[in-house]
């Protein structure tokens, strides 16, 4: 399932990359994209339970997860 998150505190492409690299390390995360200009992180997860892990990881890295983005 795909989840779109509103993530703040990414300041450059470097931040995007490291967020993507870090999330990719989590088992069950199939695809990750990030864009700091629109403050968005999109993840493709195997199951819904992983979302909590993903959000915790993003916050561990010192970014701010504001919430989910609706279509």
């Amino acid at each position: 399932m795909q989840v779109k998150l509103h993530v703040q505190k990414m300041v450059c492409e470097g931040c995007e990359n490291r967020l993507i690299n870090a999330l990719k390390e989590i088992k069950g995360v199939e695809k990750v994209t990030a864009n700091y200009q629109i403050e968005e992180v999109v993840v493709q997860l195997k199951n819904k339970e992983l979302l909590e892990k993903v959000i915790k990881k993003i916050e561990d890295l010192d970014f701010l997860v504001v919430g989910e983005k609706d279509e």
């Binding site: 505190k9 300041v11 450059c12 492409e13 470097g14 931040c15 990359n17 490291r18 690299n21 010192d62």
Partner: peptide, 9 residues
């Protein structure tokens, strides 16, 4: 992979 001070911090 560290490109800015935000990354290194």
């Amino acid at each position: 992979g560290m490109t800015c001070s935000a990354c290194s911090l």
